[in-house]
Design a protein around this nucleic acid. Structure first.
Lengths: 347, 347
DNA sequence: TTGTATGCGTTATCAT
DNA sequence: ATGATAACGCATACAA
């Protein structure tokens, strides 16, 4: 492996600067700059002259100069735990759509759920190489986020921590889980289990609350052995479904906190010889592509991923460009998508 | 929606510069710079004095200044078609591992397979805001890539176009498909179909070649009606599997050019009342998480995703930092992973 | 060991 | 309508 520490052999074939364009066009750098930035106060003739040189030599402005001068980079950081989850694709698409409207670039950086790594990435912001950041599921503490929010523009997306000086966009996780459980109940299921995500995640506990509220509301006793926590992937979902099915009194319905978990569940249920949705029903979460890849296709709680991204970026752009910061907590609507892994509702 | 076009209200709360640190520490900016960059020629006492101020005021250097001065950003762009595919997660992880060794940041940008968008993103490189780029499946032409390669450091990963002045890292797609077909044959299947990806993609035709070579080698006649092209997602895989199964003489084995396609395939096969792998066998491609999520679990062609990313980044870093550019074409080993969607090999 | 001064490429203010 | 020129924040060659 190479051992040239960063500042290795530099070779930068000195590329053209605004100075040379000016010289070649026989004008001043100021004029060239005006042309490049579309200033109206430059004679058409001059503009053409400059543009001709720019085209001819394929001049590319060095934006480091511009950014330094303007102290603005038109770049936004998106910090996300990982990329091996189709969930993020749609969110990022929404973010990019909004960003492009105002000419921002969005740069995506995976944190691997590593606190140190996330802090390193925040350095990009602190070092003024980006104008703002959207963080999907932060590993920082609420205090750290609040502190950062005082100096920089930050918005949280999907996975929210209670931090001041911060915007956030997500669904109502408590209500979403409630709605899913109610869906089970209205379809006639009463032995309802829950397989959650990591306990460290805020949405896990919110959804658990919704689960419990629904049970309570319909006078269904809560059973501790029917509540499991997973690490979020399908193997763990399968494992825990196996545990649930092995109980002396197994559940007839399982709410999973991600589509991945749900798929693991579905596989385990079928391997144990049960049929879905008649013996056991399953509901997933997120409505990712995985939900439609399962067989039977998953009933799941849809998250408006594109919109979550779009709105998050919209708030960020507002706070980056406006003096009167808004520190809002936006909640978007979720929706229960009925597919094959639950029985039809009884009217 | 806000209407503050980028250069909107600026509010940058003037943050501390190296000048002020120098003043507060009672030294010159040069000394502060030396301390910050770990220069050995500064007295321990002075260093402490400077560091004290830095800590006290949480001074964060503006890297735009440094980058401009050094004309080096320590940033690498990774252009990828989309993120809604777990395939990229592992690749990026490998890239990041290598990048961190030399202190590079990797910034990921989805191109949505849009040529214009990809060109826009290449501007980041042209505008000297990144030192190099790795592109996973480019939409540019071979000429465009070659031209860019003359001026900038570029490496292609996984999906390769024949472009000069470019490094590339991938598996041997032709051989990989060949091996998969041979696997079918050695397990006793002889009616072998292929569901490819988009025809525009180079790997699609390479793999098709491998498929044909294997058939030829084992004296199995090629049948046009058993060769299908999909757009790469599972819905299309299911659709085409349905078409294949509806043939008067349907295949008994289907090689799919992605695990997503293969899952669609598996679902369609089972819905048509056939069993896997006895009636119909399936092999996927990539060995993504999806392959283990399927039921039955997919036999698939493993791509060394982490290593592909690692090696790609390694080449890029070499070419960014060294004067003697290498324009290599690296091929990493693939591996056929046997799971449940094919019969065991007959000895 | 430290300081002075110059330049990196650009924008923007002030003249003209 | 255009041109000098001073920043922007930092690193470094050269002096001291």
């Amino acid at each position: 492996m190479t051992e040239l520490r960063g500042k290795g052999r530099k070779q930068m074939q000195k590329s053209m600067t605004i100075q040379e364009v000016a010289r070649l066009a026989g004008v001043s750098v100021a004029t060239v700059s005006r042309v490049l930035n579309g200033s109206p106060l430059v004679k058409a003739k001059t503009r053409e002259k400059v543009l001709a040189i720019v085209e001819k030599f394929d001049y590319q402005p060095n934006l480091l100069g511009r950014d330094l001068r303007r102290s603005e980079t038109m770049k936004v950081l998106v910090l996300t735990s990982s990329l091996d989850h189709s969930f993020f694709g749609d969110i990022v698409t929404g973010m990019e759509a909004r960003a492009q409207e105002d000419g921002y670039y969005v740069l995506i950086c995976p944190t691997s759920n590593n606190v140190e790594r996330e802090k390193e990435l925040f350095q990009i912001l602190k070092n003024r190489l980006a104008d703002g950041v959207i963080v999907i599921s932060s590993t920082l503490t609420e205090e750290e986020l609040s502190a950062l929010g005082q100096k920089y523009s930050i918005v949280q997306c999907c996975e929210i921590k209670e931090a001041s000086h911060t915007c956030s966009v997500s669904i109502d996780d408590e209500q979403a889980a409630y709605d899913a459980v109610r869906h089970f109940i209205e379809a006639g299921y009463r032995k309802i289990a829950l397989i959650g995500g990591p306990t460290a995640i805020k949405s896990t506990s919110l959804r658990e609350q919704g689960y419990r509220r629904a049970l309570q509301q319909y006078d269904i006793p809560y059973r501790e052995e029917w509540l499991k926590y997973s690490n979020g992937n399908h193997e763990d979902g399968a494992r825990l479904a196996g545990v649930l099915l092995g109980l002396s009194d197994p559940p007839s319905a399982i709410l999973c906190m991600s589509d991945s978990i749900a798929i693991g569940c579905v596989n385990a249920i079928q391997r144990n010889g049960f049929t879905i949705p008649d013996d056991v029903a399953v509901i997933g979460f997120d409505n990712t592509r995985e939900a439609t890849m399962a067989s039977p296709a998953l009933t799941t709680v849809h998250q408006p991923k594109y919109d979550l991204g779009y709105v998050a970026m919209n708030l960020l752009i507002h706070n980056m460009t406006s003096a009167d910061k808004r520190y809002e907590k936006v909640t978007l609507a979720h929706e229960l998508i009925e597919r094959e892994s639950t029985r039809a509702q009884v009217k």
